[in-house]
Amino acid sequence: MNHLLSGLAYLAPWDWSPTVECVCALTGAVYVRGLVVGGREGVRCGFWRPCFFLLGLLLIYGVLQTYFDYLASHMFWVHRLQHLILHHLAPFAMVMAAPGPVLLRGVPAGLRRGLGLLAQRSGWHGAWSLLVRVLRNPYLAGLLFVGLVYFWLIPSIHFTAMLDLNRYKLMNWSMAVDGLLFWWLMLTPRREQGLAAIPYGPRITVLVVSGFLQLFLGAFIVMDPKALFNVYAICGRAWAISPIVDQQTGGCLTWIPTAMMSLIGVLVVLNRMLHDSERQESVRSARIRAARQLPMAAAGRP
């Protein structure tokens, strides 16, 4: 019983954040409601998609609001693992689940209508479409994605981010939000992106280049013989580990899995391309068939 209690204590948030708690709980609740409403209307969502979405959400919550967060603020490699999850793994899983329609269905109808009216009346719609027009630029998205990784790893910036709780929170939020934005822009099929549709070619370019840029950064951190991030020595590590081993493990986490994720992203985009061209092909051949049959049918008529 005591073991169970001490185990549960690790699940308690280290730095309790009402914002993270509310956002995660609301998202989860809206998604589950969307599943239930969809089920009632006969819309099937499959088994794996909800699993991926909820797993991603749970991962984000877990690395921010459990004892893991304590380890991440006192070990460089755990911090890199935290960002790998916030910026890559969890958003990737959530975006692959194509949660848009389910989330929409999950918002109560009255609230949805109210929000729609509000968006029409105020200038929000203009601001929103401007934001979308800026953000849908794939090169800007790639620059933001890699730029944030580099920015928070500038040693002096990293130092203040690990010391100041507000900057630390900003850093982690920026990782999760940008992760969701980037992978949504990169992985979502064109026809589901609406205003923000990005052609597949630039997406592959951005994924490959951003993969390489992260690979260089990770390799640089691994190869550097000095300790680059002294904040962990100054503020104390969570357990005894040599600073260089800590740095090299963190560097490897910045190097290999991130490049892997870019590669998997490219494969997903290639699959979408193939799928879309097959669709176009079938639409075109159906049209040709219809065009051929039309005169014959007309001629056959007496």
């Binding site: 304590y70 603020s73 006192h74 690990m162 010391l163 709780l165 503020c235 104390g236 969570a238 005894a240």
Partner: peptide, 9 residues
């Protein structure tokens, strides 16, 4: 230690 973001073990 939590307040000053330092660790001991």
């Amino acid at each position: 230690t939590h307040r000053y973001r330092v660790a001991y073990h």
